[in-house]
């Protein structure tokens, strides 16, 4: 596939960001390639409602 991009004016008035987290990037500029990989894990054993103080979950 052949793709041709013509960029004319790029003018942003103002940007307000609360937070940028976990290997995220806020880029003002050009870029060639972005590759992202993310894992997010909260299995049942990670949410425990305990009658009393229970030791931490066994390694999963």
């Amino acid at each position: 596939m052949f793709m041709e991009v013509h960029n004319y004016g790029l003018h942003v008035g103002s940007v307000e960001i609360d937070a940028i987290g976990s290997s995220s990037v806020f880029l003002i500029g050009d870029n060639e390639s972005i590759v992202l990989s993310s894992f997010f894990d909260t299995p049942p054993e990670s949410y425990i409602v305990a009658a009393n103080l229970v030791p931490l979950a066994p390694p999963a």
Binding site: I20, S24, V25, I28, E32, I34, S38
Partner: peptide
């Protein structure tokens, strides 16, 4: 995280949260 003013040619980011 990265706040970047200027060109960033190649980005490969990884995040794992438990």
């Amino acid at each position: 995280s990265i706040i970047h003013v200027g060109n960033l040619n190649y980005l490969s980011a990884e995040s794992r949260i438990k």
